[in-house]
């Protein structure tokens, strides 16, 4: 998954080259921010989390062993940074009032529906939400998501199953009233 250019960049940065490290951070900042945003659902927090993740990257690059894709390693870094950040803030992510997640533009009723679904996703238990984001939104396999989240493949599958069950219950009921 990683192209050779990146591999080279990572290796140079690991050897202590500041320029290479700077290029690396610049190159991946966008991806990290996007991930952080999807994870916490709000731009301000996402910026803070991404910054913390960059700091972790400075210290943690040494521990990247190259046996997983760099991007999924970054996902893990970002999610851990996010969890730590909220711990420090002593509040919980995705407070519905602060959610800035917007579904893609489409027909207005579709969009409204999508927004409701997304809001519901962010109210799910954290593990389920994380799994959904990685698998559904980022397109990781259950196995990859398991690596990122530090759990077994089967756990990811289970969480997704649970999440879908909850979402279905919620939305089918509403639709039947509608």
């Amino acid at each position: 998954m990683d192209d050779p250019e990146d591999k080279q960049l990572i290796a140079t940065a690991r050897s202590g080259d500041a320029k290479a490290f700077e290029d690396l951070v610049n190159k991946y900042y966008g991806d990290m921010f996007k991930m952080a945003f999807k994870w916490c659902g709000n731009k301000n927090d996402a910026e803070d989390i991404t910054q913390d993740a960059c700091i972790k990257l400075a210290r943690g690059l040494d521990s990247f062993k190259g046996n997983s894709a760099f991007t999924s390693w970054l996902y893990r870094l970002v999610i851990n940074a996010g969890k730590d950040w909220y711990k420090k803030q002593s509040r919980h992510p995705s407070n519905p009032d602060e959610l800035e997640i917007v579904p893609a533009k489409s027909k207005s009723e579709d969009q409204l529906y999508a927004k409701q679904v997304l809001e519901a996703v962010y109210e799910l238990p954290e593990g389920e939400k994380d799994a959904l984001i990685l698998v559904m939104s980022e397109g990781l396999s259950h196995k990859e998501a398991g690596k990122v989240l530090g759990c077994k493949e089967s756990t990811v599958s289970w969480r997704i199953h649970e999440a879908r069950k909850k979402l279905s219950a919620q939305f089918e009921k509403e639709q039947s009233y509608g």
Binding site: G30, F37, A104, A114, V121, G139
Partner: peptide, 12 residues
């Protein structure tokens, strides 16, 4: 589809 297509703002 919904989750794939959600919009993320550009990084500042």
């Amino acid at each position: 589809k919904i989750m794939e297509n959600m919009e993320t703002p550009e990084a500042d």
